[in-house]
Nucleic acid binder design. Structure first.
Lengths: 178, 178
DNA sequence: GGGAGATGATTAACATGTTAAGTGAATTCC
DNA sequence: GGAATTCACTTAACATGTTAATCATCTCCC
């Protein structure tokens, strides 16, 4: 049996004898970023071995997946869709192009923009990985429940939208400091 | 520099003229790892500036936070609690120790194990960051709703638990051994 | 008690995340 | 119409994620 044992070996409340009145903070496991990270890792752990066996990282897969949905796409737009930062995307595109999985050309009317598309070889790779990937996703859906999964998607989307306008918490911090 | 809302520049279904019968895959935005990643990034985007202004990365903060909950803790256990892989933790502990934010000693009865604890300087740093951090968290809670937030936590926990035993060939081998 | 294997932690090597700076092409503005 | 600015990447630099290898203990078993 693997990882999922008990969290209670941490013994919270043990360190309170050292300092008397510390700023109270949430219990660690209740931290939202942590919950999201753990959940995501639990999901990705299922996919990584399959991707790796095909010589792909998670991000490379994301890019190829995004490219199958369009004929061609500009780099900035691809970064937005695949949710990667520019620098990461630059490096990965260089690698994918060297492996002939994608093709790149300059935009016709704008010398700054680059247009990317998936190659035949890239499509073949996608089709080789897709069945396993879909099977894993189906098993996840079966275990968690399709309805619950849809609900989770919805709640995550709302969360993202809720925080959209919450601009630089920098300013709030500065205000609080002064 | 607000995020634009238009997702429809992607024009899904445009690439279907190139290859006739491709393996159908989920729409990208419905991918669970992607949803989790986007939500987590939306949250972390709020905290990063404050942490950075105090010279801390997200992971360094996680470690210090975890250390405040215990008197001392072994490295492996800390990795589990802070949800970091061993190699990452090793590097970060080296850095935090050099900055005198933590202390490290060998376990009494086992020369392999190392025991870590937060230093007075580390505690001071935590207390300097905590107010801002809590304020941000409170604002997130206010925007999203406390009840919904608790429900999201619950759903994420269930998801993680649902996938716990879902062996990736790796765990299958382990089970076969036992 | 000594060697084989297991275990805890680190190091190595490569890929990505993150921020800042650089480069070359388009736009703006006088 | 040319300098200043903006824009679309790209590089650079550093920190972490991820897997494999290494190293030093420790345990077990003979």
């Amino acid at each position: 049996m693997a990882r999922k044992k008990s969290m209670d070996e941490v013994r919270p409340g043990q360190g309170d004898d050292a300092s008397s009145r510390r700023t109270p903070m949430r219990e660690f496991s209740r931290s939202l970023p942590m919950s999201l990270l753990r959940a995501r890792e639990a999901v990705m752990r299922q996919f990584r071995p399959s991707l790796r066996s095909h010589g792909l990282t998670e991000q490379q897969w994301r890019i190829l997946r995004a490219l199958t949905a369009v004929d061609e796409i500009e780099v900035t737009e691809l970064a937005r869709v695949a949710f990667l930062l520019g620098p990461s995307l630059s490096r990965i595109l260089r690698d994918l192009e060297a492996r002939a999985l994608i093709e790149r050309k300059a935009a016709e009317n704008d010398g700054r923009r680059a247009v990317v598309s998936i190659s035949a070889k890239g499509l073949k790779l996608i089709e080789a990985v897709a069945p396993t990937s879909e099977a894993i996703y189906a098993e996840i859906t079966r275990r968690y429940g399709a309805r619950k999964l849809a609900e989770l998607h919805e709640m995550l989307g709302v969360l993202e939208a809720s925080l959209a306008g919450m601009g630089s918490a920098d300013d709030a911090a500065v205000e609080a400091d002064e």
